[in-house]
Structure formats: C-alpha cells, structure tokens
Simulated scan of single mutants.
Amino acid sequence: MRVLVGGGTGFVGRALTQLLRSRGHEVTHVSRQGGKDRISWEELSRSGLPLCDAVVNLAGENVLNPFRRWNDAFCREVVSSRVETTKTLAKAIAGAEQPPRAWVLVTGVGYYRPSTTAEYTEDSPGGDFDFFSRLVSSWEAAALTPGSPARGVVVRSGVVLGRGGGAISQMLWPFRLGLGGPLGSGLQPFPWIHIRDLAGIICHALESEHLQGVLNGVAPSSPSTSNGTFAQELAAALGRPALLPVPAWAVRAVFGAERAVMLLEGQRVVPKHTLESGYHFIFPDLSGALKDIVA
C-alpha cells in the first residue's frame, strides 16, 4: 500500500511511518519542504494528489507549546495548521483521477464536553461548546469529500504517551526529581493512549477495508484514569513520590485560561467502536504503558 501522510515528520508521524514500513507499506510525507520520500504542501496544492492508496493527516501546531503565548495570532495558527491542511488534502483527494481507497484524519477528544461523570462513545454528541470543540468540528468537516469513493475514518485521539515526545517529554524531569504531582484538583479525567496504539489504530483503519466513521483513540482503561491517578502511576514507574500538586492558578498563568481547560478538565472517553472494529490494544492499562515508556 502506498500511503501519503500529512504532517508525518512529528512524534506520531514517526511512529506511524515506522509501523507502516515494517508492514511493507510505502510512505510519502507532506511537509513544508520537499525532499526524499516527501512532497511540499505547495506542490500538493499545485500538482494534485500523487498516486497513492491511502491518505492520513496528522498535521497540527502543538497547542500546549508553553513557549507560545495564547493570543489571537497563535489561535489562528492552531486552526490553520489543522483545518487548512485537511482542506488541501480533501480537495486533492476529491480531484484525483485515481482516488485513494482510504482517507484517515486524526483529531482529538476535545470534541466531547469535559465532565467528571459522563462517559462518551463515538456516537456521543459534542463539538460546539468552546474553542477546542468547535475546532474539532471544523477540522472534521474539512475532511469531507462528497462523491469520492475514498473510505473516510476519523480517529479522535486522547493524550499521546510515548518515548521521545508527546505529553511525557514535558513531565519526566519534574517527576524524576520528585517534584511531580497532579494538576489542579487531580480529579479531572485523563483520556490517554500509548503512541504504539495510536499508530496501530491508524494502521488498522488503513488496512481494514470495511472500516469507516469515527474511532476513539483512547486506551480501554482510560475512562477510569484521573489526572491524579496518572501522576501516581508515573511517579511509581519512576520510583518517585507524587506529592506536589500544581495549583490551577499556576497552570492558567502559564497556558492562559482558555488553553488551561485542556489540562484542568477532561473527558471520560470509551473506545467502543475501536474495540468493536477488531483492534487489539497493545497497552490497555496505564501501568504497563508507563513502564514501557520510562524503562
């Protein structure tokens, strides 16, 4: 299978590329600049979709970059890096003489309203209550290709955990020094997934000819994981205490009130359709996932 991956040079993209190539698939990346096994976004817009069997879009500016101030300019960049790249790929797919068989978009569980009690499956409503939910709605709407035979799949990912990137990379040093702890109350749900499972779900979606619609990219034990539980499990995996909670005001001071919601609130998300589709999780439980990452 020839797979075109937008934003494939990032943390998730590297894991997906490694998995796809290990399974005998060819991978070409769409990035800012062309090169070996890659084309630029400008070239894609100008020349259309290269011959491929499947397309994946992972592109998106890091929302939780602590070095970027949360202002109008950064908000526009966050939206554009997701919605415009998706529109570019969808337009290329719709206009292709030989369209791909599969079109997979990775978005986020921010689609669902934060709650400490509600549980959400892929059929649950959402998408219209704050900046991030509306972003996911616009993002997913941009992927629509009416009339195209390409099979569409949306993977709504939780917090991605893995070595060498993702959420863990910013947390390890405080925890290694014994300075880690929950954020805010620690009671907020913490929807998570191991990087190998997120890559696995995307690969599963590409290879399963019957599969379409929304898949929740979270671990089966994710609904029972709180931020406080995550802090305790990470500290235990490192052999350290988790005694120093980060107060909510400090999180808001660093990230801004709107963005801090992503850290101080959360959703209990169930991978119902993902499990029903036949995907078998490599890391269904948090302790096993963290031991693999910090070993």
Rank of each mutant, 00 (worst) to 15 (best):
L19R: 15
A90T: 05
A94F: 02
V5G: 05
P149R: 11
R82K: 04
A59P: 11
A231F: 06
G165F: 02
G126E: 03
L64H: 11
R268Q: 11
A15C: 05
L263I: 04
A150C: 07
V78G: 01
P223N: 12
A118D: 15
D197C: 05
V79C: 10
G48H: 05
S277A: 13
G184I: 13
R23H: 14
E97C: 05
L183R: 09
V269I: 14
V63L: 04
F11K: 04
A205K: 06
L234C: 08
R240H: 11
T9L: 11
L89S: 06
R69W: 09
R23G: 12
A257W: 04
G266D: 01
L161G: 07
T85S: 15
P149V: 07
W249E: 12
L51V: 14
A242W: 09
P174L: 03
G152V: 10
N71T: 03
V251F: 10
L275R: 13
S222I: 04
I282W: 03
Q212I: 00
L263Y: 08
G288V: 04
D292H: 15
V56H: 09
T229E: 14
D285N: 10
R134N: 07
W249I: 13
F129S: 13
Q232I: 00
L244D: 09
A295Q: 12
S81G: 13
R163E: 13
V55Q: 06
F74K: 08
D37W: 05
K272A: 13
N65E: 13
G24I: 07
P99C: 09
K36Q: 14
C52R: 10
L135S: 02
E97Y: 11
V55T: 05
S226L: 08
Q212T: 10
G147H: 08
E207A: 13
R21G: 08
A167M: 06
P271N: 01
S80M: 10
I93G: 00
A289V: 04
P100Q: 09
I168Y: 00
F129C: 11
G228L: 06
R76Q: 15
A250Y: 02
L183E: 08
D128H: 09
D123H: 14
G6M: 00
E258N: 02
P241W: 07
H194Y: 01
E258R: 05
S185E: 13
D72M: 00
L198Y: 02
S124A: 15
